[in-house]
Nucleic acid binder design. Structure first.
Lengths: 207, 207
DNA sequence: CGAATAATTGACAATATGTCAATACGGCGT
DNA sequence: ACGCCGTATTGACATATTGTCAATTATTCG
């Protein structure tokens, strides 16, 4: 006769439990808009009590912010530092950008997709930081050597270019109106033109 | 002795009341994220009972969608049809884009600002339609005459370019890292390059 | 001036979120 | 093996928010 008492719930390490809840939250927030996902949904999905979510993330908003952070975070490691001609470097950078996009795939689209009205300052900050990092990397690789001055303008240009990268990514991934090769061509050419022609003129005008 | 009975509330025409509520909603949703705006807030702001919001817009989400629509809607009227050289036409189109942006100002930024994770299909649809209209207009003005074929690719390119327009707009309006003149220069040059050099090559490659 | 119409209200029910004391899992020492 | 203890986890409670709808009242029309 089995006197084994089966535990009603498993006790996990905080980091572990946090991660598990976060995984479920990422999926649900990726499928439905914020308001359509209740903390009960997340709790049920994770198989835990709803209160545990508040214990680990404070509030629903806290959980949401963590999801956003996790989704846009890019590991600073193994960032390639391509060498060679400008053309080669540009193509490498664009390749890296597209790779980052396809890696996240559908999830990525949900992240950068416009929810519409109502910009949450904190969300804004997280996304802005991710954009800034990507821009910084691009500048490091394909930027001209002499950016002691007007470096801020250059980064601003690259961030603006980043908007085109995202939009082109949507055309490729979700709308499928462009192939990856086409997107690669367009972004490479545009970036080359931006760095080689537009930025110099902008710099000269400002002098 | 005044026997005048002052009415507790004014009775407005449905269109009028709808508009009034919508105005308040636009302001509030522009200031705070969706979840941080309660229908009670909107009702209080408009000086009406909360139930009236549901009467006119069905649900909070319905009100929100209406706000989004109103914010991204561009009147199809008085769209300029600039003539002249390609350079002039491009500059006119870019001017129009920037004008549309500055008209809405801060509000506009909130609209196209990424809320983060969780793409509402309906919101997505509204924004996509607005983008499509803008792209169509740009193609009509600065597109090459012979777009009987590859017109879809061209519109896709312009929509991608639209992403850069928005991002550049943010740099100008909110971050103030670029001036309007600088943004104008960048977008004009990039659009010219896109239409004149990139698209032809893309078309030839696909032939 | 009185009745009809419809805009508007306010109360009610259902659902979602945040809080916290009580509970029970599981490691640790004996 | 066994019981103790730290703490991960629960579950109930209080509050806030949303949607519904019959009752109310401002306004129009004869």
């Amino acid at each position: 006769m089995s006197t084994e008492t089966v535990p009603r719930w498993r006790r996990l390490e905080p980091d572990e439990r946090r991660e598990q809840i976060l995984t479920c939250a990422i999926r649900l927030f990726g499928e439905r808009p914020y308001a359509a996902v209740s903390t009960s949904d997340v709790a049920r999905e994770a198989g835990v009590a709803r209160g545990l979510i508040n214990h680990y993330f404070g509030s629903k908003r806290g959980l949401y912010l963590e999801v956003v952070r996790r989704m846009v975070m890019v590991s600073d490691h193994n960032l390639p530092r391509p060498e060679g001609s400008m053309r080669q470097k540009v193509e490498s950078v664009v390749d890296w950008l597209l790779e980052a996009i396809s890696a996240h795939g559908k999830t990525w689209v949900a992240v950068i997709g416009a929810e519409g009205v109502g910009d949450d300052p904190e969300v804004e900050r997280i996304l802005a930081e991710a954009d800034e990092r990507a821009a910084e990397y691009v500048v490091q690789v394909v930027g001209p050597g002499d950016i002691e001055s007007h470096g801020e303008e250059l980064r601003a240009l690259i961030r603006a270019f980043g908007g085109m990268v995202k939009a082109a990514g949507r055309e490729w991934i979700t709308k499928q109106t462009l192939t990856r090769e086409q997107v690669h061509l367009v972004l490479s050419r545009q970036l080359t033109h931006l760095i080689g022609d537009v930025f110099p003129q902008l710099r000269d005008d400002a002098s």
